Amino acid sequence: MVSPVKADTVDAFNGLAAIYDQSRPLYPPECLNVLESRLPFPRGSNTGLDVGCGTGILTRQLAAHFALFDKIVGIDVNPEMLKQAAIRTTDTRVRYEAIPAENIGKHPAGPFAFIIAASAANWFDRPKFYSGASASMIAGGILAFLINRRRFDSDAFLSELEDYLETSVPGYARGRYSSAVGEYSETGCFQEELIDAPNFVDIEEHRVERLISMPNSDAIDYFLSFNDLKRASKMKGQARVRRDLSDLVSRHFGESELVQFPVTAIMTSARYSAVCAG
């Protein structure tokens, strides 16, 4: 039976696909290098899976990085995001499908050499996702999570942004993420989860400190692509939220042409063990 997907998960990024795709930065190539270095050799599969692919930002990066792979598949539950992904993708090795993360078990394109979820796993029912991943990977294949953590504890601009989110979005607290049940949780402790998942071993965490830099004119759209600020816009009106963000950016960056802030890219990866799977 196909697992139902909550409407909050499907609709979370409705209306945001264009600005999401245009304003979100690429993921650090160091993380893709780590993923490649961990793949088994010989792989036995030349197919990778990007789960919760959104507009295909990482999917396209994966296709460029793994140039010898036969296929890179991106899946998501939001039709608007997938439509934008298809528009932006020219590589014929890439294909997109509307499939929930929890339903990847025995995917016809598999088995996969790697499965990766970037800035998306907070929306998953992860016990079901781990089970599905186990059923659709090659022995020794790599399951990876990639997230960007805003370093609000060391940056005055990000700290004030978090203040704004906490006062504007019901239930929000800094360091927490939206979940599939419409609440906020402290997602990101994937190491602990993978230790308890029966079929995954050799768990590693890699961190890349980054300074995100973007034109001042693009920064507001970047922040408005957050699902949290979409919720704030529903309550206050997008014009008000845009004005609030513009004031925040002006206070910290003045007439500067660039907005810059620090984030930590965290990649947690584990190896699928067919022995553990029995």
Results as ranks from 00 to 15, higher is better:
residue 266 I to P: 06
residue 188 G to F: 09
residue 162 E to A: 11
residue 28 P to Y: 15
residue 85 A to C: 05
residue 75 I to Q: 00
residue 169 V to W: 06
residue 159 S to Q: 13
residue 73 V to Q: 01
residue 218 D to I: 10
residue 189 C to V: 10
residue 46 N to H: 05
residue 257 E to C: 09
residue 168 S to I: 14
residue 212 I to G: 00
residue 149 R to D: 15
residue 277 A to S: 15
residue 188 G to L: 10
residue 48 G to K: 00
residue 109 A to I: 01
residue 32 L to P: 09
residue 119 S to T: 12
residue 267 M to K: 04
residue 217 S to L: 04
residue 117 A to T: 12
residue 163 D to P: 10
residue 61 Q to G: 03
residue 95 R to S: 08
residue 168 S to P: 12
residue 79 P to R: 07
residue 63 A to I: 03
residue 82 L to H: 02
residue 198 P to D: 08
residue 163 D to C: 13
residue 198 P to E: 09
residue 49 L to P: 03
residue 127 P to C: 02
residue 178 S to P: 02
residue 98 A to K: 07
residue 174 R to F: 09
residue 150 R to K: 10
residue 58 L to W: 01
residue 175 G to A: 10
residue 172 Y to E: 05
residue 181 V to N: 12
residue 133 A to G: 02
residue 150 R to W: 15
residue 181 V to Q: 12
residue 75 I to T: 05
residue 169 V to S: 09
residue 206 H to L: 05
residue 199 N to L: 10
residue 64 A to N: 04
residue 217 S to A: 08
residue 107 H to I: 00
residue 166 E to K: 05
residue 77 V to K: 07
residue 45 S to A: 02
residue 189 C to E: 15
residue 255 E to I: 12
residue 71 K to E: 03
residue 100 P to M: 01
residue 133 A to C: 00
residue 251 R to A: 11
residue 129 F to S: 02
residue 214 M to L: 13
residue 233 S to P: 03
residue 203 I to L: 04
residue 117 A to V: 05
residue 8 D to Q: 13
residue 105 G to F: 00
residue 90 T to I: 13
residue 99 I to T: 00
residue 16 L to S: 07
residue 120 A to F: 10
residue 56 G to C: 03
residue 177 Y to M: 14
residue 222 Y to Q: 04
residue 13 F to V: 04
residue 106 K to W: 07
residue 201 V to Y: 08
residue 1 M to N: 11
residue 277 A to F: 09
residue 225 S to I: 02
residue 227 N to R: 12
residue 104 I to K: 00
residue 143 L to D: 09
residue 162 E to H: 13
residue 29 P to N: 13
residue 146 L to A: 06
